[in-house]
Design a protein around this nucleic acid. Structure first.
Lengths: 97, 97
DNA sequence: CGCGAATGCCAGCGTACGTTTACATTCTGC
DNA sequence: GCAGAATGTAAACGTACGCTGGCATTCGCG
């Protein structure tokens, strides 16, 4: 999912956490943030600090990808051409809208 | 490119800005942030606020994508073992700390 | 070279972020 | 319906984020 606002990112993090069956307390401890902060982040607070956000996303094993329009996503290896990448991509069960 | 640290994100933003031939002043004005802040962000300051970060990325027409690995694909080097975390979570009687 | 733009960096200041603690509310399972 | 966890909020407080202004340094081009 492409992210445009803090609210969207928080929603994705919350969905991922719930999908993993984890509580805010567990994730907060794992990511090194307070439970209050995590709740605010999940609720879309725009002023949360980037480092903590990435810490939480990493703890949730969420992959953040940034690219310009028309660029490949998640270029694992420079030698890998986009066609193979897309084949692999389409082969995976990408549920979770 | 997949992002794991504020430094990486700042580097991507800087590269994109350069690719677009824009100065820090122009991008800062477009995104509604100060030039000092933009410089710090590009240099990997971890405490920058998420909302401003997304504003800059949007101004640079950078697409942020967040997704979870489909299955238990190659877990590169997760900083947190979620399996054992969930085990511990389900096993523990959840005592108050 | 030399000039100007671009960027890095410092000081000072107002403001609010993040933390802990506490309580209220919602959501579970029994 | 109840007990308990899970989550939402709020107050109080230390800290530093982000802003403006200024100046130093580097970069780019004539």
């Amino acid at each position: 999912m492409d992210i445009r606002t803090p609210g969207e990112l928080g929603a994705v993090a919350r969905g991922r956490r719930r999908a993993l069956g984890l509580s805010q307390v567990k994730v907060a401890e794992a990511a090194g943030v307070s439970r209050v902060w995590l709740a605010e982040f999940e609720n879309g607070k725009p002023t949360v600090e980037l480092g903590r956000v990435l810490a939480v996303l990493t703890a949730l094993e969420l992959i953040v990808d940034v690219s310009a329009p028309g660029e490949a996503v998640s270029k694992a290896a420079p030698e890998l051409d986009l066609d193979s990448l897309m084949e692999e991509y389409n082969r995976e069960p990408h549920d979770r809208d």
